[in-house]
């Protein structure tokens, strides 16, 4: 049977930090392998930062919830917020920004959705009853070192 936990925070930069810190502690307590933690924290950080920076941009920051299930082969998380929907109601197409270019043209952003898509086994987005629901399944073994 999967080990489950849920956490909530206000979707601000400091709220995201707290959520990641609590989430990591819960994963450690559930004996998730240490080699998985970096990948999981990075994926969650990118998804949560998007909510703080974009979904609630210009709005009073609302809550963000994460429901986590730890399985034998990985970790799945459903992240929910009541901010603005993703444009086009879909997971953004995430191409790696061009890096073979002069220094002054190097990208300073646009990596977030690329990392989420690259590191997740599955990324599913739904908008339901005014709520964004992003389901992320990570099988970290395929991404260690």
């Amino acid at each position: 049977m999967a080990h489950r936990f849920s956490l909530s925070e206000t979707a601000t930069e400091s709220g995201v930090r707290r959520l990641l810190s609590k989430g990591r502690a819960r994963l450690v307590a559930a004996h998730v392998p240490a080699s998985w933690l970096g990948t999981i924290e990075l994926v969650w950080a990118e998804a949560l930062n998007n909510i703080a920076e974009h979904a609630y941009a210009g709005l009073e920051p609302g809550k963000v919830h994460i429901d986590v299930a730890i399985e034998e082969f990985g970790v799945s998380a459903r992240i929910r917020d009541r901010g603005r929907p993703l444009p086009g109601l879909e997971v953004p197409v995430a191409q790696l920004p061009e890096s073979a270019c002069p220094v002054e043209s190097l990208p300073e952003g646009g990596f977030g959705w690329f990392l989420i898509n690259d590191l997740c086994e599955s990324v599913i987005y739904q908008r339901q009853n005014g709520e964004n629901q992003l389901s992320l399944i990570i099988h970290p073994k395929e991404h260690t070192a």
Partner: peptide
């Protein structure tokens, strides 16, 4: 021990 895409962007910006 942790850099996310915003941190990465800030390191790139530091070079630019």
């Amino acid at each position: 021990t942790f850099v996310d895409s915003s941190g990465l962007g800030a390191i790139v910006a530091s070079m630019k």
